[in-house]
Write a protein that binds this DNA or RNA. Sequence first.
DNA 1: AGGAGGTGCTCATACGTATGAGCGCTGATG
DNA 2: CATCAGCGCTCATACGTATGAGCACCTCCT
Lengths: 350, 350
Amino acid sequence: MTARRRGKAPSQADVARLAGVSQSAVSRVISGNAATARIPEDTRQRIFQAVRELGYVANPAARAMRGKRTNLLGVHTFERVFPHAREDFYFEFLLGIEERAEETGFDLVLFTSTGSGGSGERGERKIYKDGTNRLNMADGSILLGVSTDRGELARLWYEGYPFVHIGRREVPGAEIPQVVPDYRGASGAIVDRLAELGHRRLGYVREWLEMEPYEDRRAGYAEAVERLGLTDESPGFRGAHGIEADWLDEVAGGAATAIVVESVRLAESLRDQLAARGRKIPDDVSVAVLEAAPADLSGQWDSLVIPRTEIGRIAVDRLQAMLDDPDQRTGSLLVPCPLIPGTTVAAVGD
Amino acid sequence: MTARRRGKAPSQADVARLAGVSQSAVSRVISGNAATARIPEDTRQRIFQAVRELGYVANPAARAMRGKRTNLLGVHTFERVFPHAREDFYFEFLLGIEERAEETGFDLVLFTSTGSGGSGERGERKIYKDGTNRLNMADGSILLGVSTDRGELARLWYEGYPFVHIGRREVPGAEIPQVVPDYRGASGAIVDRLAELGHRRLGYVREWLEMEPYEDRRAGYAEAVERLGLTDESPGFRGAHGIEADWLDEVAGGAATAIVVESVRLAESLRDQLAARGRKIPDDVSVAVLEAAPADLSGQWDSLVIPRTEIGRIAVDRLQAMLDDPDQRTGSLLVPCPLIPGTTVAAVGD
DNA sequence: AGGAGGTGCTCATACGTATGAGCGCTGATG
DNA sequence: CATCAGCGCTCATACGTATGAGCACCTCCT
C-alpha cells in the first residue's frame, strides 16, 4: 500500500459525480442547515455513501473563504509561550484558554512567527511585521503579556480586529477590551484585613516596573490607607523602589507594624533584612505579598490568588461574544483575586 | 476616534483600486516571486504604499486554496496540551517545537477542536471529526501523544498529508514518519553499564502498558542480556507486570544483584518493598530506571534523559523537509537518550 | 381545467489569491 | 522601414465551498 500521491484531495465535485447529483446538492447535504436543504433521505444516503467511498473531507480553507469562520482563535504572546524559566506566567492562562477553546470548538493559533527576525534576539514579538498582521489568520485573538509597543494595540483596535487583552493596558484613544485581575481590589482588601487586625502604621515596598498591574496595586493600597485613616510614610508609598536601609531601621524600631510588598522576591529580601536587625515575621512585623506565591511557597506568605485559568476561560468567552456580535465593544472586565492566608500576617501585639 | 467597523478586511482588489493597477499586479508584487513579476520599482512602491494605507494583509484561506503555504504548522495532541500536572509529558516537546517554529517563521496551530464533543469526556482527541479534517488548515502537522486510533494515522498517511509523529507508533501498511527517543539503545546501554560493574544476574520490572515505547525498552534490555550472556529469570523479563512478592523474596536472598525498572513510580515501590525485607539500594541491589526522572529526583535514580526539547526541534525540521520536498517520505529517526548517573547503581560486591 | 404551492433538485455566482497567456508599447536591430 | 525582443502590465481562470434564485415536476384544491 502506498500513499496516495499528494495530489488532490477529493472535492465535493468528485462526490457529486459519484453520487450522480450536483455539487451544490452535496454541499447542501453535508453542511447546509437542514432547513434550506430539501433533500430526501435516499439521496442523502447516496451522497454519504460517496463521501465515505472517496474519503472526502471538507476543505476548511475553502469553507473559510466563503466568509464563514475559520474557527481559529489566535493567541499572541509578546514573549515566548513556553519559556524556560518563569513558566508559570503564561502557563495557567493558556490552560484556561485551551480548555475553553476545546469546549467551544475552536482551534488555537499560537503566533510565534512575529519574532524579530534573527533567532538570537530579545524574543520580543510584534504584531505587525513588515506591514503585515498575521493575526487575522484567526477569527479573533487573545493578547497576553508585556506589550511594549502600545501603538500596535491602538492600530489593531482601530482596524476593528476582534481581540481581548489579558491584563490591564491603557492605550490613549483606544478602548481595548480586556480581562483584568483585580489587583486594586485585592490590595485594598489586604489593607482592610491588616486594619482589622489592629495595624495602623503600614509600609509599602514596590517593584521597579511602572506598568499598569503595579499601578493598580499601588492605587488600591493608597486608596485603602486613606479610606481607613491609616498612616504610611514608607518610601514605597511615596514612589521609591525597592527597600531602603534607613527605613528598615525605622521599621525595626517599630515605625510600622505591617508591610505590604509587591512581590515574593522583595518579601524574601525584606524578611532577610529584618532578620538581620533581629526582627521576626510575623511576631514583630506582619508582611503581605501582592502576588500569587509559587505553589511550593503557598501557605507560607499571606498573598493573593490570581485565578489565571479562570481568566483565560473568560477571555475566550468574551472574544466569542465579540465575534457573535461585532458591535459589542466591551471594555474592561475585572476578575476578583481572593486573598490567601499564610503565616506572615498576625494581629498587632500578639 | 472610533474603530473601523468590522466589515471586510481589505483585499488585493481594494489595494489595486487605490494604487491604480490591477489585482494581479498586486498579487505579483506582494507574493509573486521576483522572477515572473516584471514590475518596476515605482509601481511597486505605489502598491506597497496602498497596502500600508489600507492595512492590507493576505487572506490565508484564499492563499491556502491556491495551494500556497499558509505558514501554519499544526500540532495535534491526542490529549490536552496544557494538562494540570505540569511536569507532564508534552511541555518540553512543545518548548522545542515553538522555538524552532519561531526560528523558521511558522506559526503554530494547536488543534484542540477535535475533542469528543462534550466537555466532561475523556479528553481524547480525534483527527477526523464528522467528516472534516482540520489538520489541512496547516501546511503540515506534528502529532504527539497516545493515539489510540491507528486507523486515523493510517488514513492520514494514505491521504498524503505531511506529518511527523513524535514517538514510535507502528501502523501496519503505513510507514509513518516519526522521531523516536531511542529507548531501545538506552536500555541496552544501561545493561552494558551494569555488566561492566560486575552484575551478572539481573531483573526487570515492567509497567502495565503495552505500547511501543515500552516494547522498545524491553527489546533493548532482552537483547543486551542475551548479547552479554547475562541471566535474567525475573517475572518482568518473561512478561509479568509489576512487582511480585515471591520474586522479591528471591531478590532479597541474592537471586539478582541489579534490577532495571521501567518507571520511577515502580522503582520507588521496589525500594520500599526491598527495604521492608532489609535490603538497601545500592548496597545490596542496584536499580536503574528506564525513564527520565523528574527534576526534583534527578541525580538520585540512575536513569535516562529524554531530550524532549531537541526532539521537538527535530520534528519541526523533518516536517519542513517534507514540505520542501513532498516526495521525501522518510521513516523513523532515532534520537539518543543519554544515561544520567545517580546513586542507585553500584559495582557488585562494593 | 387552471392555479397554488410544495418538492427536489440545478445554475450561477461570489469569496480572495495566484498564475499562464497575452496585449500594447517602446527601443533596438537588420 | 519592418521585425523583434523585452517591458509593464491586464485578462481570464482555477481553486472548493456556500447559497440565493430558479426550473421542472407533482399534488392538491377550487
